[in-house]
Amino acid sequence: MTVHHQISDEYLTDYAAGNLAEAFNLAVASHVSLCPESRARLDEIEAVGGAVLEHCETASMPAGSLEATLALIAAGPPAAAAPPPAGHCTVLPQPVRDYVGGDISAVRWRPVGMGVKQAILSTSDEATARLLYIPAGCEMPDHGHRGLEMTLVLQGAFLDGEDRFARGDLEVADDDVSHMPVADEGEDCICLAVTEGPLKFSGLLPRLVQPFLKI
């Protein structure tokens, strides 16, 4: 699989440095899971982090720190996190499965109107992650947005202006962009969409229901 729309180095660096909100981390981790080239670039960018750490200034540790750490070690490793849900899913990569708590059949879709469905994933509230289900050929409501938006295609494809985004492709939109993604014909489109702040739908009806939908 070739991914045509890859994440930029700047956002990959933010991810490597741990400086993105959880919902954006989810989008980046999922994209990297589906895109070997981005994974290779992430390895390089983390290697730069290692070199920066190696050659950074130091802050001395107080006396007794080593002994305290050895005592921590002797106490044993912290309880391991629950193992990820077993099995394989051809739609959701592992990071998304972790948030859904299962494969695509476990997603609790809510209709948003015009055949579009969504499921909000639970993350910290600086940004919102949701799965979107858009029937083939359907338009997403026309929307602009405040701040950053990342959209990762998991199934099918969508068209946005001149560009076509298919599985693994990540569209990153910065401020002040108004765009109109349309699901491509052939297959219903499933995306992971992450936004900073609420979407601003420009149609009247979606704007009215927006507060109730938490979008």
């Binding site: 490597a16 440095a17 741990g18 909100a21 959880e22 981390n25 989810l26 980046v28 981790a29 999922s30 990297v32 899971s33 994974r39 992430l42 983390e46 982090g49 290692g50 920066v52 750490l53 990569p93 592992q94 990071p95 972790d98 948030y99 993350t123 910290s124």
Partner: peptide
Amino acid sequence: FTIARNRKVDMLRRQRRPEPE
């Protein structure tokens, strides 16, 4: 660096950190 980075996310943002598959 990656272990310290993960601890930082946990410490400062009190967030899970999704990792690639």
